[in-house]
Design a protein around this nucleic acid. Structure first.
Lengths: 230, 230
DNA sequence: AGATGTGAATGAGTTCACAGCT
DNA sequence: AGCTGTGAACTCATTCACATCT
């Protein structure tokens, strides 16, 4: 899982002109590592490094050199043999692969504790993603502004989506409301969903969905603490 | 790896008297699915079901029957051939396996947007886990109460840990402060860490650590949206 | 010389298919 | 008869080892 359990189908196609035409499906694991590589490259860029080998990248960020090369190989040839990778170039390429060269618009559904924190967090920190709308069922919350957006009623979801054209829905409602809100997001035309509710959603085909479940992580740690002799 | 990148080592040992003495290491994937099964069983219990087969469990919650049986097999024999599983019994067993039969104490480090939401979320919603302390570097935040705990200064971490004896640390500080705070948690004797900062931590051996990285999930969805023809 | 990119080998995880119990 | 529990087959992921290029 990252989000561990059931997730949306993975589909093909890589970076636009990258020499990997009808490549096979890319795994979630690989994609998630690309994000990690990208983050690491940004850090290198910030500290002025211009070139790096897979080995050095691995050493500095606790990764595997072979795996870096294998992962990158799925999207093209980005390095120079005998030299390594140009930091700025690889960074740009990975951004292209992950389609971070354009902005992704988000709508947050459910503005409780978590939803509110997510709106603020995303509003501030997350370059490449922008919260364009938020809805909540509770009339008391409607009209309030959070992190630059005004909360609208859940019932108007469809209209809000038409007006603000988000492509990714962020579900932060209580578990019992998750499925209906998920279905509503799909019906409204959202292209992907990030789900924070602790439920096994019945997924719509063609709408990639990732689950983030705090409780699952805590329970894993609870097990590991005891397994380690706690 | 569900939490995608580097994570702590997995260790052995299952449910106390379960007939699986020195079982091999349990994978993160299996553990995370156990959490899902447990959640599903709770729901069945709530709706009054007393017995269920792996097949029916799979059908209702979009899981795999074989996988349920294989996962459970790592910890003992919990079912009755020809019949299925006793819902209440299996629920109790899984809680035992995951060591949810006792309370796990948490300390939250960093009480910004996310940290605050986490404290409140955990304070309210998460049975089996309890936030016993929160610390923050910012003197302006110190002394304020959030979700039942009073924020204390990060500098007093060691003392706070001695007083409140948490076993799991929840890291919700900015990326640049993550490593030092992680190290401080380890030094203070925490047994596990749930990290929300976007960094590749240099992990302490013997301290299981899970990363939850919002940005990684969003980037995966960004890729998938385009791959699906967006 | 030195690093990439990659086929082959290994390992991990899932699914199949059925023996064995109730 | 029906469902669990599990070895065997298979699929997916990682690592090895080296041919290839600069």
């Amino acid at each position: 899982m990252a989000g561990p359990h059931h997730e949306g189908p993975l589909l093909k196609r890589a970076g636009e002109r990258a020499p990997r035409p009808p490549s096979p499906e890319v795994s979630s694991l690989t994609l998630n590592r690309l994000s990690v590589y990208l983050r690491s490259l940004r850090q290198l860029q910030a500290s002025g490094e211009s070139t790096i080998s897979s080995q050095e990248l691995a050493r500095r960020f606790h990764l595997s050199a072979t795996q870096i090369r294998k992962d990158l190989a799925q999207f093209g040839e980005f390095g120079i043999r005998g030299v390594g990778y140009d930091v700025a170039l690889l960074e740009a390429r990975l951004r292209g692969v992950l389609s971070l060269d354009r902005e992704h618009r988000l709508i947050v559904v459910g503005v409780g504790n978590l939803g509110q924190a997510l709106v603020r967090f995303l509003a501030v920190a997350e370059e490449g993603f922008r919260v364009v709308a938020a809805v909540d069922k509770d009339p008391a919350k409607v009209g309030r502004r959070v992190g630059g957006v005004t909360i609208r009623p859940s019932k108007e979801l469809r209209g809000v989506v038409r007006e603000t054209t988000p492509e990714i829905g962020v579900l932060a409602v209580p578990p019992e409301a998750a499925q209906e809100n998920y279905d509503a997001l799909v019906a409204a035309g959202l292209r992907a969903v990030l789900n924070f509710a602790s439920v096994n959603l019945r997924l719509a085909p063609g709408v990639p969905t990732k689950n983030v479940d705090l409780r699952i992580h805590l329970e894993e740690l609870a097990f590991l603490v005891r397994a380690a002799g706690g």
